[in-house]
Design a protein around this nucleic acid. Structure first.
Length: 589
RNA sequence: GGGGUCGUAGUUCAGUUGGUUAGAACGCUGGCCUGUCACGCCAGAGGUCGCGAGUUCGAGUCUCGUCGGCCCCGCCA
């Protein structure tokens, strides 16, 4: 035998009597003197090995955690009194006839053989050891299963997986590009793709019909728990598509991924317009699990003696709030804490109102009077024992503020169950959003998004009124996919470029090849891209995508294991015609 | 770029108003132990309190700066 006969999670009672050869890492050693037990571990599980006096090979003394061993032996049934029901191989043990140390191991900087919390900095520096622990292995295994399920689904639906370039052309819109200097062309640069957007549209022009790709994308922006500089999308594009066709395809793909992770998904998904999502939930990726829609009660306070509310309404702002079921029992301290959080989010304050045994209590009872507060409480759907939380100010600001407060309260109340999935399509996004810094309109999605046919008339007169044929898929407050029906007519595309402040000359310079391609018979098409890292994090119950990536970077975009990024030889810089202006370790300006 | 938070033994943590030689558990090293499975028992080693200034008779503790991890805002078509 020169390779292992079984994995460490494989042996059962039925193997009793067989001669086996296992290899793996020493998990834990129990040296009783005359007999030594140890567990040998690989990613499949643990198997107990018994080393009795007289076994060949390494002495028990050399067995330490994380040493790599090869075990020759035979499978023996465990006596009923010593069965270990905690491990899958607990009915048996392997009696060693020989144990060979294949490789020594230093004492690890943190325990591999128990699930203890370790500083993330240490985990990232020794990522290979962290990855040896079951928690990350579970996540990566699930990631593999979900990715395979997605591939199988798209294959069965007639999609072709086609690779697109990593070395591409920089386009100034959107996120900052990662640049790669060209050695051959002095002073010129490739950009790493923020997404394969233009390439996949060109594949539609080419007649490939249905494309998908599990692809890496790169954006040089600041990091978050759910944002890394390189991340993975499941990129999809469909010719002759309508919104309904995309929804159908995406819902099927989503179900196949959730099923691979062991969850059921009911189809079709709910839908909400962007305007309603912002109004009712204060978010363009609403978490529908807790209910608690936000109500607008501005009309009740237009002439209120309570100046905070009245002033908000008369200056084109709003008074909005939501009901916390059973929140009437919140203590004064809890209410003060919530008010403080509202202030930290930039709100002027928080007004609470509750009804206890029919009596209305409110922090604005004297200032606003009981009648309008009672009307507001009823209008928001409050019942006996409930709590109404209200804030006043500009509409946009109140939407996001109350949206965030709603999630804080919902989390506090335990209403965000991690294994309850509420999918929702967010539709009817605006095509443009006003950019006050540059005093112009920007694409909300991207400049290739088609306007709604009914709104084309407003492209010139009221760009802010034009809705896009764009859609996002959200689940539990996370955006997990986003896409659109694209512009397939070159004249419309040029028109949109012009509205975005991109002249025909600039458009030709940057996107000339694409505009030209559009003129050679472009089918109507549309698509979407899933954020695979976020999906896996949700399915694993992890709050950061770092926990579902093998080698993530820190918030400062550094790989603590490899030390990237790093300085390079002068020779390399010379080849690339690059001169640096800041010395290593100093911050540029 | 801004705000918050954390940094003490290999790991997880404790450390009083600023006061003697900085502790615990686990891990590690040595010894004992023939049915353990978080084995047990005995003994031992292990610290630039992130780093640098400052205040003070005296700093893990207070101040300032700095480095790093994490979270958030900006940013992310």
């Amino acid at each position: 035998m020169n390779y292992r006969t079984h994995t460490c999670g494989q042996l059962r009672r039925e193997h009793v009597g067989q001669t086996v050869f296992l290899q793996g890492w020493v998990h834990r050693v129990r040296d009783l003197g005359g007999v030594t037990f140890f567990d040998v571990r690989d990613r499949h599980g643990l198997t107990q090995v018994v080393v009795r006096a007289g076994a060949d090979g390494a002495s028990a003394a050399k067995l330490r955690p994380e040493v790599v061993v090869a075990v020759h032996g035979y499978v023996e049934a465990r006596d009923a009194s010593v069965v270990n029901s905690k491990i899958s191989t607990g009915d048996i043990e392997v009696v060693a006839t020989g144990v060979e140390i294949l490789n020594e191991a230093k004492t690890p900087p943190f325990p591999i053989n128990e699930d203890v919390a370790v500083l993330e900095e240490t985990r990232l520096r020794f990522r290979y050891l962290d990855l040896r622990r079951p928690a990350l292995q579970r996540n990566l295994i699930l990631r593999h299963k979900v990715a395979i399920a997605a591939r199988r689904y798209f294959d069965e639906e007639g999609f072709l997986e086609i690779e697109t370039p990593i070395l591409t052309r920089s386009t100034p819109e959107g996120a900052r590009d990662y640049l790669v200097p060209s050695r051959v062309h002095r002073g010129e640069f490739f950009a790493l793709p923020q997404s394969p957007q233009i390439f996949k549209q060109i594949l539609m022009i080419a007649g490939l019909d249905r494309y998908f790709q599990i692809c890496r994308c790169f954006r040089d922006e600041d990091l978050r728990a759910d944002r890394q500089p390189e991340f993975t999308q499941i990129d999809v594009e469909v010719s002759f598509a309508t919104e309904e066709l995309i929804y159908e395809i995406v819902e099927g793909a989503t179900r196949s991924m959730w099923t691979a992770a062991g969850f059921d998904v009911a189809l079709p998904f709910e839908r909400i317009t962007y305007a309603d999502a912002m109004r009712l939930y204060g978010s363009d990726k609403p978490d529908l699990r807790p209910g608690m829609p936000i109500a607008d009660v501005s009309g009740l306070f237009a002439e209120s003696p309570f100046t905070v509310f009245r002033d908000a309404v008369t200056s084109a702002g709003v008074v909005r709030g939501f009901v916390v079921a059973g929140g009437g029992k919140y203590s004064r301290k809890e209410l003060d804490d919530l008010t403080e959080q509202v202030r930290q989010m930039g709100g002027s304050g928080l007004i609470w109102t509750r009804v206890i045994q029919g009596a209305l209590q409110s922090s604005a009872l004297k200032a606003a009077g009981e009648a309008p507060l009672r009307q507001a409480f009823d209008a928001a759907g409050g019942q006996e024992g409930d709590l109404l939380l209200m804030a006043a100010g500009p509409s946009d600001k109140m939407a996001t503020l109350l949206g965030n407060l709603r999630l804080i309260v919902a989390r506090k109340a335990g209403l965000l169950k991690p294994d309850e999935f509420r999918f929702v399509w967010v539709t009817n996004f605006p095509l443009f959003e006003w950019n006050p810094d540059d005093a112009r309109w920007d694409s909300m999605h991207h400049p290739f998004t088609s306007p709604m046919p009914d709104d084309v008339a407003y492209l010139e007169s009221e760009p802010g009124r034009v809705r896009a044929r764009a859609y996002d898929l959200a689940v539990n407050g996370s955006e997990i996919a986003g896409g659109s029906i694209r512009i397939h007519r070159p004249d419309v595309q040029r028109h949109v470029f012009r509205l975005l402040g991109i002249s025909d000359e600039q458009a030709s310079a940057r996107f000339g090849f694409f505009l030209e391609a559009l003129e050679y018979g472009t089918p109507p098409h549309g698509g979407i891209a899933f954020g695979l890292d976020r999906i896996i994090a949700i399915l694993c119950g992890e709050s950061s995508i770092r926990e579902v990536m093998a080698f993530p970077k820190t918030a400062q975009a550094v790989d603590l294991m490899s030390g990237a990024p790093s300085t390079v030889d002068d020779r390399q810089l010379r080849d690339l015609h690059i001169q640096t202006v800041a010395s290593p370790g100093t911050k540029g300006d």
